[in-house]
Design a protein around this nucleic acid. Structure first.
Lengths: 196, 196, 196, 196
DNA sequence: AATGAATGAGCCTTCATTCAT
DNA sequence: TATGAATGAAGGCTCATTCAT
């Protein structure tokens, strides 16, 4: 006997189609320039169906964001098993760079920063941040990092600065290799806390 | 040759009113949310007049941007006369922070990054950047900064990172004191090139 | 023959839940503003179920109306046993006033007047009217009312005028006590036929 | 030399076309059933033009209402010069009946009563009412009307009841002659204050 | 120089209703 | 009996822009 009904399965697929259509569109243009008609025609469903699954235009994108959150907490965090905290941090930001390169992300970050929707009022990077803070805390505890700044301050310093790089990269039309540049950049940032 | 005619003078005043109205509005809301009606009703002119002076909505904001460019080249640069390069850099970013706090700027920065108008495709901070590069170059030349990185690379490193901070500040609803934080932040960034 | 099957019983309950939900909603807003979603979520059934019982949105409200009709014929009429016709009429309109106050009624009256459904094209107050006509007829027959007007005319005069009051009361946002005002009003209307 | 510019004149005509189109539509259907597209296609202008003149759908109809107000204050009032107050009142309601017969009015009255727009929250008949109150007051002052009720109460009694009649007439699909019925009706209403 | 009437494509969203399961 | 996924016409409204005056 089937675990999930046929209907239920198809419903999930429909919602996914909508979700991926929105996500893909975000790779092409800004949130304001994406219309619901764009989304539904890409997903090949009716406009009524869109509103059956999402209460508002912003809602689809909010979904996108939740996926990102989950990725860092569940996928990236377990990968940070390198011997030194320095390496863990570099790995963390390597993931961040690759993640940002992933076609659809940069616009999403924009969106999350600038959305006027109450959903978005919390820090859109909180998922990531928590992961980084934990790493830094290990560095402080183990004496690998020596500083009077707190783990939160240090993690924030690094996050804020590297977001600046991602922005710059987007602004420059992604004209350089982000992961490479990220490494160069991080090595300089880390001079403040972990001189090589 | 005749001084400016009355007519010509009034024309300039009208254009200015339009320009300042747009600029002030930028302090309140995003570019996308500012309508031409907003602008003309603040400037108290007709819509026809608006289109007499600016070919398109983006044009007024472009004007705004040019003013910023000019400010850094003509006003800030001459102020950087402190004895050490370190102090000059800190002063430069202090201006940058105050400039960003100045009500109207943060949105403008966002606008400049996101505008789809061909005018904007160059680096919107080129005016500032040029000023900073010159300072860094003096540092390298005088031996105050020791690094194999070029002045462009170093200036870019600092600019990119501090833009990250401004973004963060905007994102956090300007909830902290930017100039103070900027100083804290710069002191850490400078560890890469100018350890205190 | 079997009592009602369990199935049949549940069906009736479901239909009732839908009916009462619609009725209650009518107390809050106009027919046009009530959506089927409102109804089903209040009744806690699915939209499919709604359409299983009612062919169209108007149908639920039609049901509501039939209940009102029934109320006057079966509940109010038997209560009109006062010694004088004058008192009976005042009692009748006292019921009418209270009935109109009863949360759900005013909107319903409006609905009945405005519905574009063919079902509603007859006089929505015919149930009440028949009761009042009978009373007035007794008044004429017993000589308590002296007039060349027919019972229908007199009853209609009173009904039409008092509906005017109910409308006024609704318009004024139910800001006064309807039963009290109804009595004041009726005393003046009755000057035409039953001077105190 | 022309008093009004050509443009200004044409603008007025356009607004009028819109206004009359809306008004005429009201004779055919209910407010809710009239779309802005109905109005503009009848007036033969663009939708942008509609919104140039009226901020909202309700606004056109609000205009209609103001016209009615003005009519009673400026046209009807001066006509009430009959020798007795009784005749003045009958004349007043004769105007009211004819005015209501005027194709476009009945729906308008509905609209005014039921609109959810703040504009309409005051008594939509205040224009008329004021005229009637003045007449009744003269009746009280001259002793033609003897009552302990105030002029406001008496006028209200009459207005409320006769609105009931207009509603009834609309409900009955205008199937009888309103002015005639109004007179019959008024004669009975006046028994409370001005027995013939 | 200045005005503002006119445009209309296009936006987001609502909602009654159908039908396969 | 009961469900809820899917539909799409239609609605009110915004806004940058043009052009005759």
């Amino acid at each position: 006997m089937p675990e999930k009904g046929k209907r239920q399965l198809q419903a999930e697929q429909t919602k996914d189609r909508l979700f991926y259509a929105a996500d893909a569109l975000l790779a092409e243009k800004d949130y304001e320039d994406i219309t619901i008609r764009d989304i539904i025609s890409k997903a090949d469903v009716s406009i009524g169906t869109f509103y059956h699954y999402f209460k508002t235009k912003l809602d689809v994108f909010y979904e996108t964001y939740r996926v990102a959150d989950h990725y860092f907490a569940e996928v990236v965090a377990p990968e940070l098993t390198q011997p030194t905290v320095r390496e863990q941090i570099l790995t963390f930001f390597d993931y961040y760079a690759h993640y940002s390169c992933d076609q659809t992300q940069p616009r999403l970050i924009y969106l999350l920063y600038n959305a006027r929707n109450p959903h978005f009022n919390r820090d859109p990077h909180s998922g990531m941040s928590r992961v980084l803070i934990a790493v830094v805390q290990r560095g402080l505890d183990s004496g690998q990092i020596r500083s009077t700044d707190t783990a939160e301050q240090i993690a924030s310093f690094l996050m804020v600065a590297s977001r600046g790089l991602v922005y710059n990269w987007v602004t420059m039309d992604r004209s350089y290799d982000l992961p490479n540049m990220m490494r160069w950049y991080l090595e300089r940032l880390l001079m403040a806390y972990l001189p090589a």
